[in-house]
Each structure stands twice: as C-alpha cells, then as structure tokens.
C-alpha cells in the first residue's frame, strides 16, 4: 500500500527550536487508513496537524505528505498540496459573511471550477450532509452541529487525498457528534480517503477498522 503520510525522525518545535513539542517521531499512514491521534491536552496533537497542513515546518527530520516533503516545500507547491487536503476544525472556521453553499464549495472555487459546477456540487454536498435547504443560510444562523456538517461538506468538496480533523466533535452534543463520525466513516469507506483525526477520546460507536496513535512525552506511538 502507498504511504500518504510518512514521518521520519520528525521533530516539531516552537520558538526556533527552543520549545520542543514532538521529538524524533516515526510513522507511516497508508491510503484509506482511518487514524485517531489521542493524547493529553498540550501533548502536541494539534501541532502535528499544523505540520501536516504546512503551517509549521519540521525543525528536524522529514514529514512527507502525498510525496512532498513539507519541511522543504515551496509556497507554490504547498498551496497546490493544500487543495488536495480537507481540513475540519473544532471551531468550524466557516466564513461567516458567505452563505453555506459558498462555504461548501470554497475548495472548488480555489481550484477554479466554473460557477455552474460549484452550484451543482454545493447541492450534492449539502444533500450528503443532510442540509439540503440550508444553502442560502449563513453560518451564524446554524447550530454548532449544522455548522460542523458544513465544515465536513467543505472538507469533502474536492475528494481530498487526506482529511485532517482537529477535535471535530469537541464542541458538539452526542447526536451531532454521531452524525459527523458517520460522515467521516463514509468518506473513508466509500472514497478510500485517508482520514486523520485528532481527538481526546475515540468514539464508542465507531464501526470501521482504525489505527490509533497516541502522543506521550514528545513521542508518537501506535497503540492499536
């Protein structure tokens, strides 16, 4: 199986290496894997995710995503790579002045798809996340669960190679959380998308086979 993500002797730090968060980590994630990364607060889960979408560069070692080394990648290549990554944030990060439909097709807009294709895809994606009639509404008119479904629809818009999710159900009730896990399971199962989720707790209702990494004492270890 091909590696979608490959970390080799990866060290991540802030303040020019003064504050080490992750040290000498090694792991490989294959296409179609569903991966949970757990660990205590402040252990470096979100830092790892930041590194995976190119917001933080490795201070040592390498982190390769989709064949591109993120520690040496150029700005242009990083922009291109980001169009193949779907990202889901705990606080949704929707654009509040845009309506739901426009938020959902943001990755298509960036990729230069025509308005007609964007409209068709917005309808399909909103139907997929069960928000068919919500296209014209604005994010602040929706509940937290609905906003996160918009976030998931946006992450799926361009059939990404990998979905990175940072505590996607952290702010949601049980029902909304289950809907989100369902959607992510479907993406992994039906589209063979690699999904990497940073979370405090693995959901009990999860039915797919998954891999589980934990971050402890600056190291990343596979536990399941």
């Amino acid at each position: 199986m091909s590696n979608v993500i490959h970390a080799s002797h990866l060290t991540l730090s802030y303040d020019n290496g003064k504050k080490e968060i992750i040290k000498n980590a090694n792991f490989r994630i294959q296409k179609g894997d569903f991966v949970f990364i757990t660990g205590p607060s402040g252990s470096g889960k979100s830092t790892l995710l930041k590194a995976l979408y190119g917001q933080l560069k490795a201070s040592e070692g390498s982190l390769v995503l989709g064949g591109l080394d993120l520690s040496t990648i150029s700005t242009g290549k990083l922009q291109e790579l980001r169009t193949h990554i779907g990202i889901i944030f705990q606080d949704y990060k929707l654009i509040n002045e845009w309506n739901v439909a426009k938020n959902v097709v943001l990755p298509l807009m960036i990729a230069g798809y025509s308005t007609e294709i964007q409209e068709v895809q917005a309808k399909r994606l909103l139907k997929h996340v069960k928000l068919t009639d919500y296209g014209e509404r604005f994010p602040l008119e929706l509940s937290g669960g609905e906003q996160q479904r918009v976030g998931v629809a946006r992450a799926l818009a361009k059939n990404p190679v990998v979905i990175l999710a940072d505590e996607p159900t952290g702010n949601l009730d049980e029902y909304s959380s289950n809907v989100i896990w369902d959607l992510m399971e479907n993406a992994c199962q039906q589209l063979n998308t690699t999904v990497l989720v940073v979370t405090h707790k693995i959901p009990t209702i999860f039915s797919l086979p998954y891999r589980h990494f934990t971050i402890e004492s600056k190291g990343i270890y596979e536990v399941h």
Partner: peptide, 16 residues
C-alpha cells in the same frame, strides 16, 4: 483576516 486565513489554509493563492 479570518476569511483570508481560512482561504489560505485551503490553498487559495494570494490574489484570490
């Protein structure tokens, strides 16, 4: 700021 940051995360070039 927020809109531009979100667009950047999804790979939008500077001009967009």
């Amino acid at each position: 700021k927020e809109r531009m940051q979100i667009m950047e995360i999804f790979g939008a070039p500077l001009m967009l």
